[in-house]
Simulated assay, not measured.
Amino acid sequence: MRCVVALNALEELTLQQMSINHRHRDTRARAAGLLMLGRGLKPRAIAAQLGVSGQSVYNWSHAWRARGICGLMGAHNGGRHALLTEAQITVALEIARAEPLSLGGIAQRMQVALNGPLPCKVETLGEALKRNGFSFKRNRYTLKKSATKKHSP
C-alpha cells in the first residue's frame, strides 16, 4: 500500500513549526514524519529514523487524511494520571481560603475532610494549590543571627 501525503506550502510550514515547537515529543515526531512523507521518503525509512514502528507512520498518514492537523494532535495520551481529583482540589481550596494555614495544616485538614490519608505527597498538594493561585512561604523557626549576638553573655 502506498503511503503518500501531498502537502501545500502552508501545511508544510505548519508541520515544520509543529515538529520544532510543540510541547509533546510524540506530536513533534508525527509532524516530522508527515513532513518526510510529503518529501517522498518511504515509511520504513521514516520509522527507522524516528524510532517508531512502520505501522505508526501509516497511522499518521491516515489520521492526516481523515482529520488534518487535529488528527495528529489528538492522539497524545502520555503522562501520569492526576493523584488529586478535581473534588479533592476543590476541598483543599476551600480549606486554604477559610483561614491562613501552612501547607501541612491544609494537608491535615484535608485528611480529616476526606476521612483518610492524603492520596499524594504534601508537595503535590502544594503544586495543585499553586496552580490555583496560592503561594506559600516557609516558616522561619530560627532567630536571626544579629538577635542572638546581642543577647549572648
Rank of each mutant, 00 (worst) to 15 (best):
H22A: 08
Q55M: 07
V4S: 05
S146N: 10
R65N: 10
R23N: 07
V112C: 03
V5K: 10
K42H: 13
R97D: 13
R138H: 14
L34R: 12
P117A: 05
A31V: 02
K121T: 15
R65V: 03
V91A: 04
E99V: 13
R67G: 00
P153T: 01
Y58L: 03
Q108A: 15
G104K: 12
G40H: 05
A128M: 12
C70F: 09
V122S: 01
L84A: 07
C3D: 09
G116M: 05
H81P: 15
A32S: 09
I89R: 11
R80M: 12
G126M: 10
A45D: 14
R65K: 14
A107P: 00
R2Q: 12
A98F: 06
L35A: 01
L125T: 07
A98N: 06
G133Q: 04
L93K: 13
R39I: 00
F136I: 05
N77K: 15
A29D: 11
G126N: 04
R30Q: 10
Q88H: 06
S102H: 01
G133D: 03
A29I: 14
T142L: 13
L129S: 10
M110D: 01
G40Q: 09
A9K: 07
K121Y: 01
H62M: 09
I95H: 08
F136Q: 10
A98P: 00
W64N: 05
L50W: 02
L37M: 13
E12Q: 15
A82F: 00
Q108T: 09
H22E: 10
R65H: 13
L114V: 02
H62A: 12
R39E: 14
R28P: 08
T142P: 00
L13D: 13
S102N: 08
V52W: 04
G78Q: 14
E99P: 00
I20R: 12
Q88L: 11
S56E: 08
G78K: 10
A63L: 14
E127N: 12
E123T: 02
A147L: 13
G104S: 12
L37T: 08
L34W: 03
S19V: 01
V5H: 06
A147H: 07
A32F: 01
Q49H: 15
A9P: 00
P43M: 02
A96E: 04
A31C: 04
